[in-house]
């Protein structure tokens, strides 16, 4: 377990990647599950700049790890630092505004897509995730999985977070939609947002990401 950078020259930023601090640092994390620890003695850093992929087989604690970043869960041991400060020292609502986590099983809330997106910049947001503007008035809890995945991503982006954390964000998308989303994530990272995504496909993650954290 641990984090490593990709081979030099293979990341999207190539040699121009600036030297900057970590957005998140996880130190010696233990999370207990029903049958023993899910994570134990886990440490990793998530750089502030670029796109970080978390890879690992299913059951290695990827989703568990993400839940620590916005404090849906707290670790049983160890500490999570955001910008060098314990996440427990932030106001939790403030933390969650700054760190948007989109879960693996996306949920559209009752009401229109526009309403889900907060009724502002709806067309632009939909375009960014590759959805037509005329979807705005459709009910958000009656969409296909792929559509819901993109709506929940747009909903998170609409909050303009500093950190965007996505759990398998393209699992239900076709090739074209998947490419569109991956391109968007690259743009967001280039604009200075810290983007973290979980993937079960290490090879794909290496192509996409600037940093890779392996679990398991």
């Amino acid at each position: 377990m641990g984090s490593r950078n990709l081979r030099p020259g293979m990341g999207r930023f190539d040699a121009m990647m600036p030297v900057v601090g970590d957005r998140f640092e996880l130190r010696d994390i233990r999370v207990d599950g029903d049958d023993g620890p899910i994570l134990d003695g886990f440490s990793a850093r998530i750089p502030a700049v670029g796109l970080t992929a978390i890879v690992g087989e299913s059951g290695t604690g990827k989703t568990t790890l993400l839940r620590l970043l916005n404090r849906l869960d707290d670790p049983d041991a160890g500490v999570v630092l955001l910008d060098g400060r314990d996440v427990r020292d932030y106001d939790v609502l403030e933390l969650r505004r700054r760190v948007q986590v989109v879960s693996q099983t996306p949920v559209g809330f009752p009401g229109t897509i526009a309403r889900n997106l907060g009724d502002a910049h709806v067309t632009a947001l939909l375009a960014r995730v590759g959805l037509d503007a005329d979807m705005a008035e459709r009910e958000a809890d009656r969409l296909s999985l792929g559509e819901t995945q993109r709506v929940t991503l747009a909903r998170a982006i609409a909050r303009e977070p500093e950190v965007l954390v996505l759990d398998e964000p393209t699992s239900a998308l076709d090739v074209r939609a998947k490419a569109r989303i991956e391109c968007l994530l690259g743009e967001l990272a280039d604009d200075g947002m810290t983007v973290v995504l979980v993937s079960h496909d290490p090879r794909h993650a290496e192509q996409l990401a600037d940093h890779v954290i392996e679990l398991g």
Binding site: R96, F109, T152
Partner: peptide
Amino acid sequence: RREVEARLSLACTAREAALP
């Protein structure tokens, strides 16, 4: 649970997330 935690993740308060 998933819907509740999705709302919490969007920085809703516990009360707001539990409203439905």
